[in-house]
Structure formats: C-alpha cells, structure tokens
Amino acid sequence: MTVRRTRQATTGFIHDFREFALKGNVVELAIAVIIGAAFGKIVTSFVEDIVMPFINPLVPQGNWREATIGPGIRIGEFFGSIIDFIIIALVLFVAIRVLGSWKRREQETPSPTEKECPYCLTMVPIAASRCRSCTSNLPPDPSQVFNR
C-alpha cells in the first residue's frame, strides 16, 4: 500500500514537473538566457576587437583592460565590464524601441465604417444621412463633413 502511494506521488510529481518545464514561459526564458549569453560574447568581442584598438593608443600603458591599481586590483577589467554593459543596454534599448514601434503599427485601429443611430441605436454606414431601420435623419458626422 505504501509502495502504491509512493509510486503515485512520484508519477504525479514527474507529471507536474514535465508540465512546468514544458510551459511556454519556461522554454522561452531558457532560450532568452542562451541568446543573451551569446549576445554578451558578441558584445565583448566587439569591445575587445573593434573598440579597443582605437582606445589602446590613447592609454599610456597599452591595453586598458589589463590596467591595475596597486597589487592585483584590476580596474581595467571593471571598466571593460562597464563598457560592455553600456553597449548591451544601448542595443537592447534600440531593439525594444524598434519592436515597440512595429507593435504599435500593428495595433493601430482602422477608422470606423459604421456609426450608431441616436434614435434607434442600430449601426448604419458612416456616410448615411438616414437610418435604414427607423428612417430618421441622422446628424452629420463631423469627420465626414470636411471630406465631401
């Protein structure tokens, strides 16, 4: 009897864990972490291989990432990490703004094609001057007056 309960509990735990691990959010988070790590390597390479050759001649000691203060305080590595962070933050900021503008374009709603009759509350075309249900004269739509 105890074996059966233990087996059911284990099977239930495995089932619950499988559901949790395969949820979209967890998988997407894992992908984001992997892509973020790869992106961090790209940015570090960009700073070390492209930015550093321009900065190294300006630093009296040469490679500023290897600069130290006192016995073993690697201040150059610290500043290099700060520059990496700033570049990553800037690229992410630009990417999020671009994605946000694309999303806003998709969400823009088209102008309405119908309006509500104030007398019988049925929907009629915007350009209509009479309601098709109650045949009452409709007040002109201010946006349509200038378009005629």
Results as ranks from 00 to 15, higher is better:
Gln8Cys: 10
Gln8Asp: 13
Gln8Glu: 12
Ala9Pro: 09
Ala9Asn: 07
Ala9Leu: 14
Thr10Val: 10
Thr11Leu: 07
Thr11Gly: 01
Thr11His: 00
Gly12Lys: 00
Gly12Val: 04
Phe13Ser: 01
Phe13Tyr: 01
Phe13Asn: 00
Phe13Ala: 04
Phe13Trp: 00
Phe13Asp: 00
Ile14Leu: 13
Ile14His: 00
Ile14Asn: 01
His15Asn: 05
His15Phe: 03
His15Leu: 06
Phe17Ser: 04
Phe17Asp: 02
Phe17Val: 11
Arg18Met: 07
Arg18Lys: 04
Arg18Val: 13
Glu19Lys: 05
Glu19Arg: 06
Phe20Ser: 10
Phe20Trp: 06
Ala21Leu: 10
Ala21Glu: 07
Ala21Trp: 04
Leu22Ala: 07
Leu22Gly: 07
Lys23Arg: 12
Lys23Ser: 14
Lys23Phe: 02
Gly24Phe: 02
Gly24Glu: 09
Asn25His: 10
Asn25Met: 13
Asn25Ile: 11
Val26Ile: 15
Val26Trp: 06
Val26Gly: 03
Val26Arg: 11
Val27Gly: 11
Glu28Tyr: 09
Glu28Asn: 15
Glu28Trp: 08
Glu28Gly: 15
Glu28Ile: 13
Ala30Arg: 03
Ile31Glu: 12
Ile31Phe: 09
Ala32Val: 13
Ala32His: 11
Val33Cys: 13
Ile34Ala: 14
Ile34Pro: 02
Ile35Val: 14
Ile35Ala: 11
Gly36Ser: 12
Gly36Gln: 06
Ala37Trp: 10
Ala37Thr: 14
Ala37Leu: 15
Ala38Cys: 14
Ala38Arg: 04
Ala38Asp: 08
Ala38Thr: 12
Phe39Arg: 03
Phe39Tyr: 09
Phe39Asn: 09
Phe39His: 04
Gly40Trp: 03
Gly40Leu: 09
Gly40Ala: 09
Gly40Asn: 08
Lys41Met: 15
Lys41Ile: 14
Lys41Cys: 14
Lys41Ala: 15
Ile42Glu: 14
Ile42Phe: 15
Val43Cys: 04
Thr44Met: 01
Ser45Asn: 05
Ser45Ile: 03
Ser45Trp: 05
Ser45Gln: 03
Ser45Lys: 03
Ser45Phe: 07
Ser45His: 06
Phe46Glu: 06
Phe46Tyr: 10
Phe46Ala: 12
Val47Ile: 13
Glu48Val: 12
Glu48Trp: 02
Asp49Val: 06
Asp49Ser: 08
Asp49Glu: 11
Asp49Phe: 02
Asp49Arg: 12
Ile50Pro: 05
Ile50Trp: 11
Ile50Glu: 11
Val51Leu: 10
Val51Thr: 01
Val51Lys: 01
Val51Asp: 01
Val51Gly: 00
Met52Gly: 06
Met52Ile: 07
Met52Phe: 09
Met52Val: 11
Met52Gln: 08
Met52Thr: 13
Pro53Gln: 00
Pro53Ile: 01
Pro53Lys: 01
Pro53Leu: 02
Phe54Val: 09
Ile55Gly: 08
Ile55His: 06
Ile55Ala: 11
Asn56Trp: 02
Asn56Phe: 03
Asn56Ser: 09
Pro57Asp: 07
Pro57Gly: 08
Pro57Arg: 04
Leu58Val: 02
Leu58His: 02
Leu58Tyr: 02
Val59Tyr: 05
Val59Met: 12
Pro60Gln: 09
Pro60Asn: 08
Pro60Tyr: 03
Pro60Met: 04
